[in-house]
Each structure stands twice: as C-alpha cells, then as structure tokens.
Amino acid sequence: MVNYNEGRLNQVFSVLADPTRRAILQELSRGEQTTKKLAEPFDMSLPAISKHMKILENADLVSFRKVGRNKYYYLQTNAIDDAALWIDTLKSFWESQLSSLEKYLLNSEEEKGGNEK
C-alpha cells in the first residue's frame, strides 16, 4: 500500500470539495495570476477570493511570488500528486476487481452454455 500523510490528504480533499476553489485551481492551470485576475470570473469580493487563496495555500495547492503589492499565484503539485497517487491506488484495486468479476461472469456463461447442450 502507498504511504501518504493522512492529515494532508484529508485537507486536500476537503479543500477540493469547494467548487470555487476547484475553479481557481483550473484557472491557475493556465499559468500564474494575481488575486484580482483570479477574482474576475467570480461574483465575489477580493477579500473573499483572498480567503480561498489562503485556504489553497495552507493546503500546499498554491504558492505565490510577490512583486510590489501584487501576489502572483501559481500551482504547487506535491499535494495534488499525493491525492492522485492515492486515487490511482484505489483505481488499480477496483480495475482488478472488475477484471475478476468479468472473468467470473464469462466462465459462468460458458458453463451455462455447456450444460444446455
């Protein structure tokens, strides 16, 4: 089983549960942006966007560089990579389970077909 920091993973999924924060991350996937630029597509104030940015920052999903009075935010990949690895591990498990089920069902069908002849 893959080792991961459970607290960090919980925090990432909690942060990603919010649609505004997911949309912000999507925007940042196009490149770094200021808070003002990130706020444009949303019907909310700059302080509200700043709160979302602080939450994303605390979860290690974004970072920033400061130029004058402006913060330029960009994506951090480590926390997302951990979450993706956790999801991939479960995906592998379920794919193997579905493969086993498919084999079982195919064998059952063959046995039924063989008994009816």
Rank of each mutant, 00 (worst) to 15 (best):
T20G: 05
T20N: 07
R21F: 07
R21N: 09
R21D: 09
R21L: 10
A23L: 14
A23Q: 10
I24W: 00
I24H: 01
L25W: 01
L25R: 01
L25Q: 03
L25Y: 01
Q26I: 15
L28F: 03
S29W: 05
S29E: 06
S29T: 06
S29Y: 02
S29G: 04
R30A: 13
R30Q: 14
R30L: 14
R30K: 12
G31K: 05
G31I: 05
E32V: 03
Q33G: 07
Q33M: 13
T34K: 04
K37A: 08
L38V: 09
L38I: 12
E40W: 10
E40G: 00
F42G: 01
F42K: 03
D43Q: 12
M44G: 03
S45M: 12
S45N: 11
S45D: 12
S45L: 15
L46G: 05
L46F: 10
P47Y: 08
A48T: 10
I49W: 02
K51S: 00
M53N: 00
M53W: 00
M53D: 00
M53A: 03
K54Q: 10
I55A: 14
I55T: 10
I55Y: 06
L56E: 01
E57A: 09
E57S: 12
E57F: 05
N58I: 06
D60T: 05
L61A: 04
L61N: 01
L61D: 02
V62S: 00
S63H: 06
S63V: 06
F64W: 08
R65S: 07
R65I: 04
K66S: 04
K66W: 02
K66M: 08
G68N: 07
G68A: 13
R69I: 02
R69H: 05
N70W: 02
K71P: 01
Y73R: 03
Y73C: 01
Y74M: 03
Y74Q: 03
Y74R: 03
Y74E: 06
Y74I: 00
Y74T: 02
Q76F: 06
Q76N: 07
T77Q: 09
T77P: 00
N78S: 15
N78F: 13
N78H: 10
I80N: 02
I80S: 06
I80E: 04
I80R: 02
D81G: 11
D81E: 13
D82P: 00
D82Q: 05
D82L: 08
A83M: 12
A83S: 08
A84M: 12
A84E: 06
A84N: 09
A84Q: 08
A84D: 06
L85I: 07
L85Q: 10
W86F: 11
W86K: 09
I87Q: 09
I87Y: 06
I87P: 09
D88V: 10
D88P: 04
T89I: 15
K91N: 12
K91L: 14
S92P: 00
F93G: 09
F93H: 11
F93E: 11
W94P: 05
W94L: 15
E95A: 09
S96V: 14
S96W: 03
S96I: 08
Q97P: 04
L98G: 05
L98E: 08
S100Y: 07
L101V: 13
L101P: 03
E102T: 08
K103I: 13
K103R: 10
L105A: 11
L106D: 13
L106S: 11
L106Y: 08
L106G: 07
L106V: 14
N107R: 11
N107A: 14
N107T: 09
E109M: 13
E109L: 14
E110K: 15
E110T: 12
K112H: 14
K112P: 04
K112F: 14
